[in-house]
Design a protein around this nucleic acid. Sequence first.
DNA 1: TTCGGTGATTGAAACGATTCATTTTGGGTC
DNA 2: GACCCAAAATGAATCGTTTCAATCACCGAA
Lengths: 345, 345
Amino acid sequence: MSVSVKEVAREAGVSVGTVSNVLNRPEVVAPATVRKVTEAIDKLGFVRNDAARQLRAGHSRSFGLVILDARNPFFMDVTQGAQHRALENGYTVLMGASDSSLTTEQQLLDLFDQQRVAGVLISPMHSDLSRLWRIRESGTPVVLVDRGSGDRSFSSVSVNDVEGGRIAVQHLVELGRKRIAFVGGPQSIEQVRHRLEGAQSVIAGASDASLEYLPTKQLSVIEGRAAGERIVAMAPGQRPDGVFAANDLLALGILQAFVMSGKLKVPEDIALVGYDNIAFAESAVVPITTVRQPAEEIGRTAVDVLLREAEAGENAVREQFVFTPKLVIRASTTGTANAPAPSPR
Amino acid sequence: MSVSVKEVAREAGVSVGTVSNVLNRPEVVAPATVRKVTEAIDKLGFVRNDAARQLRAGHSRSFGLVILDARNPFFMDVTQGAQHRALENGYTVLMGASDSSLTTEQQLLDLFDQQRVAGVLISPMHSDLSRLWRIRESGTPVVLVDRGSGDRSFSSVSVNDVEGGRIAVQHLVELGRKRIAFVGGPQSIEQVRHRLEGAQSVIAGASDASLEYLPTKQLSVIEGRAAGERIVAMAPGQRPDGVFAANDLLALGILQAFVMSGKLKVPEDIALVGYDNIAFAESAVVPITTVRQPAEEIGRTAVDVLLREAEAGENAVREQFVFTPKLVIRASTTGTANAPAPSPR
DNA sequence: TTCGGTGATTGAAACGATTCATTTTGGGTC
DNA sequence: GACCCAAAATGAATCGTTTCAATCACCGAA
């Protein structure tokens, strides 16, 4: 079916070893021979069989990346960053979304195991990292993405989510909002817990403000809309005047519900802050104030760390990268018309 | 490093052939033996080496998918659909974005070649399908996605883009818009050409309406914003009163520019129609009227066709699926407040 | 007791690239 | 012309799984 080194060797009148050398270390082969072999390769349309290379090498030349949600532009940005940096180093990225399902996460890891990936990048569902320990013990480096490693036992590239939650709610409080609602869930997602924690820390320091927790099942536009509808349905007296959503998808959904109701004006009646600074937050009905995370940089850095760990092998040093999030202020809290200049992402 | 069938066989006291049979055809192995082997597998933590399987099988158990843009939610929806359907059939999807670069497209195909993927799904850049011919001739089925195969020489799953362009502009004309602008590009993208063609066909039939073509370099929010700014800068007398954008990302950017200028009201001064019906079109500053394509279904169907072609081998029948797009009317053309019920995607 | 026959198991070959110890080649020296 | 050495080329072994022809074990029928 497809051409192998053997046939190339025959065509070029050399041995298979030489063909392999031309492919991998042309400097040890006589120039004339290199030419002969290259010509044979072109003539026969030879394409290396990656499976055979991997089998011999013991591991593949791709990294496995497990993200939480492929529909969230934030993760696609992370993926993009990772993919580019990996490609620069001759690696490929296999991306899979766990869709916040533990089973799917396991399946993806099984898959990566079978593929003998050179490393795993993962935004894990919960704190039980035992599976990841096993993977690393079997010789595959693991880097946590968008999630710190509490005890520093894994390398990680993350953003300070507690701080992110803090600056978001701080902003709302400084605008004079008293009844704050936090919309997000499930709490099994660490990022959600941390952002909530940061929110609570602000409230604890502000005597006259309160925080209400409105749980959601997922971090999606649909769930956001549902949460928004719940808020719309509340009695005016106990309705929050500021909402902090655990991510921009939720915020977008919440905003939709508010606008559709025709009853709640943003930010006059209720201010809204999201998280991630996805491109679409800026072009929403009311441009959404949000907490920016350097998505692509997270992806790139994660691959860098993975490459270093892979190189170092057994005695690799664990690295902890923690980025600091920034508040991007837009009309959903300040009510000023759309920001005149496009904000950086 | 990692456990092989050989060690499992030793542990279980059987031959490697038997272990392989337990793995692949347990029904031909005595129940007691199956148990012994299964226990040995669990005990040693054996994980199949996919590279070795592939090598033997001659091809991998994954499909390669080349999309135009990973940041466009439309393509992520297609990917999601493809991934799910593939998984149901025991296949994996390797997704790569060509980012509208021919070189990247080639690189991805090279990669898939090396991986000996079981099939290729591609949303190709231009009409030169010679590379795809070669791939198919080497025994790998190919299905065109979101793009028809003019001469039916490839199977394809697409949407009638000419019709999509037609209904979009038809809608604008029916609303009484006379000076229509088509924003999109580059024309090397077939989808863009067809949508433009559909737009032109309407104008040709409407005596008093005109169509202006505003080219863009990409189908992105940024490019949309730039195009929008160009429109804002036009003299009021020759400014279009209706804009049809080649996709929702562009539309979102255009809308941003209009709103930011503070000079143009949508739809009063200028009506806007997008394409794709991505989730974010609905939650835009002004919810955007758009042309809906069944993204996930496209992905699913494409995998189905690929599976059929792979099964049939040499004498496979080429199949052409053409979905019909639907107009989703929102405030950016009708000006009515946000649609009360969320529209279907 | 022997002979089929069936169901279960075996083990060697094959997949294709890489590696590395070994052999060959070609110059240069004395 | 013999000898040495470096550079170049060779080819068998290896990776882990699957396949399949061959063998084995066991039971019932003759």
